[in-house]
């Protein structure tokens, strides 16, 4: 009775307290999101000082994106090329990132190793995550350009100058390397939280049964950590799809020959240059769909992880 009275008299305050968040979200995110989708079906761009459109054109922008002979493409389907570049650079960074982070998380949480100075190491490996990606990329350009310190070392040892930014493989590797350095500390912390969430009695039981640490890792840590690793991998993929700052600055807008151009750099070209809201809207919708599918995956695996851990606890 008392409780019911309370909920009736204070309900309006709930709405008042959440109102600013929702109003701002609707004005600055939801309406722009809807208009992004809408413009993807319109011809709407700037030509000089004139604005063309918005004129409804149906799926023309989408058709142009996938037509090799359209004004957007040069004989190839650019959006697929750039999606490919994005995926390649993501994979090159993400695989070492997961391996390193897993090793670090196991080392930090091991009761047998009792690593000292953990706080120092965690502080150091997380730090690159907070550093401005644009500045990090510029630093790598300074270090790896033809007159930079890396080439000075190479030539002083008798080697020839390596033009890192004129070759696809080395330019992509450097983009991946920056992403790796910026994110492996963050992933380590997430995986550590995951390992510490595993029922400790499992490890104790394994120790009593005489399991080797390799067996413990393979038979307990990995299977129980799997849901979190899947979560980490997919959120990293969603982040990877948004890759922009690092390749934009490091490779000077995707050089050599657009081999380091990502999806969001492609999107950026169409918003910032001709303000082509139609084509950039269509690119956004495509990225949104990919991200949406992946997000559903994340939600599913998170639900799955909840069920799994309950089951394992009952089992013990």
């Amino acid at each position: 009775m008392n409780k019911k009275h309370k909920s009736v008299s204070y309900a309006k305050w709930g709405y008042i307290f959440i109102a600013p968040f929702f109003i701002v979200y609707i004005v600055f995110s939801l309406i722009p999101l809807i208009s992004t989708f809408t413009y993807s079906f319109f011809e709407y761009y700037e030509r000089g000082l004139d604005v063309v459109g918005p004129n409804f054109v149906g799926f023309k922008n989408y058709a142009d994106l996938f037509d090799p002979s359209s004004y957007i493409n040069n004989g190839e389907i650019s959006i697929l090329t750039y999606a490919g570049n994005t995926m390649i650079m993501w994979i090159m960074g993400a695989i070492p990132q997961l391996l390193f982070s897993l090793m670090l998380a196991v080392i930090f949480t091991s009761a047998r190793l009792r690593i000292k100075g953990q706080r120092f190491f965690k502080t150091v490996i997380y730090m690159p995550n907070l550093i401005m990606a644009a500045a990090f990329a510029m630093l790598f350009f300074a270090l790896f350009n033809t007159v930079g310190p890396v080439n000075q070392i190479i030539t002083s040892m008798g080697g020839e100058t390596v033009r890192f930014f004129d070759m696809t493989v080395s330019a992509r590797t450097l983009v991946a390397a920056i992403n790796f350095i910026m994110w492996f500390g963050n992933t380590t912390i997430l995986l550590m939280a995951g390992i510490m969430g595993i029922d400790q009695s499992l490890f104790e039981a394994a120790a009593i049964d005489g399991a080797t640490s390799w067996q413990v890792f393979y038979k307990i840590t990995i299977p129980l950590l799997m849901p979190i690793m899947v979560y980490v991998a997919i959120t990293s993929l969603i982040g990877g799809l948004q890759m922009f700052d690092v390749p934009q600055i490091l490779t000077n807008r995707g050089e050599p020959g657009n081999s380091c151009k990502t999806l969001i750099m492609f999107l950026n070209d169409y918003i910032s240059g001709s303000k082509n809201y139609g084509v950039s809207g269509a690119i956004s919708v495509l990225v949104f769909i990919i991200t949406g599918v992946l997000s559903i995956f994340v939600f599913k695996t998170m639900g799955w992880s909840g069920k799994k851990s309950k089951k394992s606890k009952k089992g013990v």
Binding site: L33, Q242, L267, I271, Y277, G281, S284, F288
Partner: peptide
Amino acid sequence: PTQISAVG
């Protein structure tokens, strides 16, 4: 991601 609604 914020980039998705950047156009609008």
